[in-house]
Design a binder for these strands. Structure first.
Length: 496
RNA sequence: GGUCUGGUCGUCUAGGGGUUAGGACACCGCCCUUUCACGGCGGUAACACGGGUUCGAUUCCCGUCCAGACUGCCA
């Protein structure tokens, strides 16, 4: 079993492409087959090396490793030329001389007359001598494939059809172009539909899994396989991934920047590799497992073309986020910390000097990351969530000031807390809790009345992880300093 | 317009001639609780419509409607 992923390097790898790559890879892995990567860069206008690099990066990040390649179509011209020659000699293709403008005019005419806008074969009807004269003169032409006038072309399709193959009417297809405009001396570049067939045949591809937008191409491609007398692979055309009920495309200009369609964009936002694989594996496919969260080896074992869905799938951001947060909570802590570090550094926080002097900075960082692991759904949320560990608050949440700081006797309370914590030994969360609970009791205050002002004083916020974990991580000196700062701030900013 | 493909809770889906139509995310409620989260428990919610076939259709068939893709000298 030989499968391939064949992206065109005209932009980043998007999530739909990643899912196509994943399914091909999964099937290859499951059956000990071969997964080939081929870059379809026949369009010199739009292909870039930068894009190729990005696509390879994204695949590697996802852990989708190819067994062969990457092959580049731009380096395989000889094969295509050879195949064109072959078809020409057999009379299966012919040169067509119309300019794009002429074609467009004809197309509009056809549409206006409610005719199917397929090529009218004007060049095929030219006398042989005329064709030869034009070719000799160096007139520009494209190669068109002569599609049979009658009959049907059946695409062996595992998904997008009923029990039978997917059937297309030849008469409705039109003689499609297989090679761009050129002359005999300077031939144009062959096109996708053609190169794809030549390569898949030469590379021995047995099974093509790709997006459903290629389904109608498949009919043309089958015609080409037949023309070459090559075996036709089996096709699986995946349902499309939709966003707000329209195709999620990398060409979509209106895409919301908060929800990038690229794998790299998601990575930069702090989506995890594990969550991304897990989530896209569920788009248009189901598995016999009860849970919807599973590691990739379970995925490989259970992937099955028969469990593919036929209808399009909407991309559910909520579910993706949920899975991401699940992995942040459940992946080995060490692994999460490792991945959070670049985000913290990119935000400009110097965690090494923020760590209490008595502590190993990296271990300390691990501790505070652990405190936010069940709150942050994206890696990119950690810097803001943890900011007060790196920089002492200089202002306090406005609503908190109003509701908490302006309560009865808060400055004195902060003093008392500072004093109590000074005497708390060891400076651990359990000891602090006992100490502050009893302080509350003596003052006749509910525990919340003690904890909330302290939280606000120390973090500047009304919400945080468990207060005592925070205090312990901050260390005694820093906590006392912040309590005193808060009290002073309160005295110079009294209730209006 | 033509060709092709689809249609089960809001979303992703399981299922399949007889089921209380199952799960997940989201949502709502309760519990836990020093805040915010996490977690636990529970709840609302679906077979597009009309004809057949059948003792019985959400499931099979046909139409309708709706949706999407393709209709490039892009891939």
């Amino acid at each position: 079993m030989r499968l391939r992923f064949a992206p065109s390097p005209t932009g980043f790898l998007h999530l739909g492409g990643a899912r196509t790559a994943l399914f091909n890879w999964l099937l290859a892995k499951k059956h000990n087959g071969t997964f080939i990567l081929r870059i379809e860069d026949t369009d010199a206008e739009r292909s870039t090396e930068e894009s190729t690099g990005q696509i390879l990066d994204s695949l590697q990040w996802l852990g989708i490793q190819w067994d062969e390649g990457p092959f580049f179509q731009s380096q395989r011209l000889e094969h295509y030329r050879e195949h064109i020659d072959r078809l020409y000699k057999e009379g299966k293709i012919y040169p067509a001389f119309e300019s794009p403008e002429e074609l467009e005019a004809e197309r509009e005419r056809a549409l206006a007359e409610k005719r199917n806008p397929i090529y009218n074969r004007a060049s095929l009807k030219l006398p042989k001598e005329e064709v030869e004269r034009r070719l000799a003169e160096g007139m520009r032409f494209v190669w068109r494939f002569k599609v049979p006038d009658e009959g049907y072309t059946d695409v062996p399709e595992t998904l997008m059809s009923g029990a039978a193959d997917c059937r297309f009417e030849n008469a409705a297809m039109g003689d499609f172009v297989i090679s761009r405009a050129g002359t005999l001396k300077e031939p144009g570049w062959p096109l996708y539909n053609f190169c794809c067939v030549v390569d898949d045949a030469l590379m021995g591809i047995t099974h093509v899994i790709r997006g459903q937008e290629h389904l109608s191409n498949a009919a043309r491609q089958v015609l080409l396989y037949k023309a070459f007398d090559y075996p036709v692979p089996t096709f699986t055309h995946l349902p499309l991934i939709m966003k707000n009920n329209k195709k999620m495309s990398k060409r979509d200009k209106d895409a919301d920047p908060a929800f990038p369609v690229s794998v790299s964009g998601r990575r930069e936002l702090g989506y995890l590799q594990e969550a991304t694989i897990n989530f896209i594996s569920l788009l248009g496919c189901s598995y016999p497992m009860e849970e919807e969260i599973f590691p990739v080896d379970v995925l490989i074992r259970n992937f099955d073309l028969n469990r593919l869905q036929k209808s399009n799938a909407n991309f559910d951001e909520d579910k993706y986020l949920f899975q991401n947060s699940w992995y942040i909570k459940n992946l080995p802590r060490e692994s999460v910390v490792e991945r959070v570090v670049p985000f913290i550094e990119a935000a400009g926080y110097d965690w090494e000097s923020a760590a209490p002097v008595s502590r190993d900075a990296y271990k300390w960082l691990g501790d505070i990351v652990a405190l936010e692991v069940e709150r942050c759904k994206l890696l990119s949320e950690f810097p803001a969530a943890l900011s007060y560990f790196f920089v002492a608050p200089t202002s306090y949440d406005a609503r908190g000031v109003q509701k908490i700081f302006h309560g009865e006797g808060v400055p004195e309370l902060l003093d008392a807390v500072a004093e109590a914590l000074l005497l708390t030994n060891p400076f651990t969360k359990d000891a602090m809790e006992a100490s502050l609970r009893s302080l509350g009791d003596t003052r006749g205050l509910g525990f919340g009345k003690v904890a909330q002002p302290v939280r606000l004083a120390v973090t500047g916020r009304t919400a945080s992880p468990g207060l005592f974990e925070v205090l312990e991580a901050l260390g005694r000196e820093e906590v006392i300093r912040r309590l005193i700062n808060a009290k002073e701030w309160l005295q110079s900013n009294p209730k209006a």
